[in-house]
Write a protein that binds this DNA or RNA. Structure first.
Ligand code: MN
Ligand code: MN
Ligand code: ZN
Ligand code: ZN
Lengths: 146, 146
DNA sequence: ATTGAGATTTTGAATCATTCTAAACGGCTA
DNA sequence: TAGCCGTTTAGAATGATTCAAAATCTCAAT
């Protein structure tokens, strides 16, 4: 069910790990593969269960470890909504998140650079931003449920 | 140390509770008073300890209950950053939050209506927004630490 | 003013995502 | 082959939040 990483994806992974002095392991490859295979912002537990199908002995703690490593490398972003379990997103482009309250699903929303620029302008002069998070919450209303 | 509610504030509280069919209690008045007294986005535990000084028998569960009630009424907003304890904010104007990583403090950032409008425009047509959360993360760099 | 139904508060236990600990493992180098 | 050091693993610990059940309070109706 889960495809392997393509050349470019494998390269991103290896490069990011190498850059921060960490090793390539089968667990890390599988966890990253799972994230890329289905970009639905899975929780740790969801990643864990998907990865188990490929690597039956994998432990939950390792999934926590791998994801934390990826976040540290800048390979993956954490996505939080309210007090729910943390979700993970391998989309590195600047984007916002829309969380559909009726399905629980989280969608990526492309974020024009223009808006990001405007946002940093509303801050007092001495506030230096490192990250900005924008999250929408609502419902999708089309008849053909996406 | 903690002032009482003024006429307007007491009215907001009573009105919001009445509107959603809930009762006025001393605990609710004190918790709301604590929130208005120091607008630093306290956690439940911080609210609890501040309120204890006025009402020694108060229980932590009640503080959770009161704050949940206020959020349900629309009197107060929850503010989440990463996986930290939830914080509470009685500022009902549309605003973003800036979290200073060096001090842990959370500041309100006024949010021009213009930007909110632009933000809703980046969503696909069938996405109906109920709430938007914008949070900055970074540091304040002035010599006179604010 | 009194009463009673229903809401609220309280205590302590339960939940559950996440983190921690310590032991086992694995690849690499000397 | 032996040692090094980062990684993985299982299980315990943590900590914010929620829950359950009994005691108490509030307020509308009398
Ligand atoms: Mn939030
Ligand atoms: Mn976040
Ligand atoms: Zn995303
Ligand atoms: Zn605020």
């Amino acid at each position: 069910m889960i495809q392997n990483l393509n050349k470019h994806e494998r390269e991103s992974l290896h490069e990011a790990l190498a850059k921060s002095g960490q090793k390539i392991t089968p667990q890390r490859e599988i966890v990253y593969t799972v994230l890329l295979a289905q970009r639905d912002h899975p929780t740790v537990d969801e990643v864990y269960h998907r990865a188990l199908e490929t690597m039956p002995g994998l432990s939950l703690a390792t999934v926590y470890n791998c994801l934390e490593t990826f976040v540290g490398c800048g390979l993956v972003r954490q996505v939080n909504h309210e007090r729910e379990s943390t979700r993970y997103c391998p989309n590195l482009a600047p984007h916002a998140h829309f969380r559909d309250e009726s399905t629980g699903r989280v969608h990526d929303i492309e974020l024009p650079k223009e808006i990001l620029d405007q946002l940093t302008k509303i801050l007092p002069a001495n506030f230096e931003t490192e990250t900005i998070e924008i999250s929408f919450q609502g419902r999708t209303k089309s008849s053909t449920q996406n």
